[in-house]
Design a protein around this nucleic acid. Sequence first.
DNA 1: CTGTTTGTTCGGTTCGAGTCGAACAAGCGA
DNA 2: TCGCTTGTTCGACTCGAACCGAACAAACAG
Lengths: 176, 176
Amino acid sequence: MRRSDEVARMSENAEAARERVIESLEQSAEVYGLSRSAGRIYGVLYFADAPLSIPELVDRTGYAKSTVSNVTRTLTRVGLIHRRSSDGGGRRVRFAAEREIWYILQDVFQQYVQRELQTTHRTIRRAERGLDDGDGVEAERIRELRETYEDLQEIVELASELSAAELRDALDSYEG
Amino acid sequence: MRRSDEVARMSENAEAARERVIESLEQSAEVYGLSRSAGRIYGVLYFADAPLSIPELVDRTGYAKSTVSNVTRTLTRVGLIHRRSSDGGGRRVRFAAEREIWYILQDVFQQYVQRELQTTHRTIRRAERGLDDGDGVEAERIRELRETYEDLQEIVELASELSAAELRDALDSYEG
DNA sequence: CTGTTTGTTCGGTTCGAGTCGAACAAGCGA
DNA sequence: TCGCTTGTTCGACTCGAACCGAACAAACAG
């Protein structure tokens, strides 16, 4: 029994639709390097009418309190949810989902892909500098690889500065 | 002892550079959802002067024969390496690395991200159709999500038709 | 036909991520 | 002050992916 009785007011259809979408989000989460629990928790927050506390998330997801605590931390770090430092001032924390997914996906990209591209590029350059003149074949191979990574890096960098609409526009209007 | 004596002719610098780059590829592989062994095997093939057979890969990577067999299969399926069906006609198979990484990354994108986007989009649309008129809040949330996914899908679709240079160009020339 | 080499498949092991429950810390209200 | 609730941290467990070795299949050489 995953959902709490608080949300039982909604229609059967809405309930089913919501559950299906949340299951999709669970699966999407895995693609972006997050856990399934992260997908579900984000999904529950995405549909919630108001920010939710950890006990409420425990109630609505069925996960253990510790799991919810850890997952909300990583989701907050990534920026997919926000801590609404509770108005009452008390210890109770509430979380709300970020709905502008595009900017978050950009951030995830920055943190995962771009960071990876950067470190790889650095490593390749260092390796390249350590070569002698006689190392013809290796030098050529490594140079090719470096240039590819420089292209990739520039593409990601440029793309991360645009909104989804702008990016779509840029691609759409290119050469036609 | 990872490298075979066959390649001992190269200089210490080239050897070290090569090893560092291959380690980078190992790490990159994880980002793209592949195993570390896949990264190393691709790296060895990337630097190889000629296509290599499975025993040769076993020799140069230190992995078990079965591991090399499985990894080469998935790398072939993804398109990162090619089977050079041996000229001798015999059973011996040789593998060569695809060096145009860009097109392969596009394919990986197609297979991982775009496929995921498609199924999620389908699920969301199905959920949306199952809603009644009274399901106001859910309908709105799901609509937003669907539109975001449609944007993402179109972006990926457009980007997958361009080469790295074209993509870089398109982004670079947009609005300035 | 027999032995050898190459490649695949299968069962088992290892290792790390995800999850849980319990213990602990920190605040609030009686 | 003493409970009660909330949130975090820790050790243990589970499960799946990666990897290995052995057994098997297939092809060629002699």
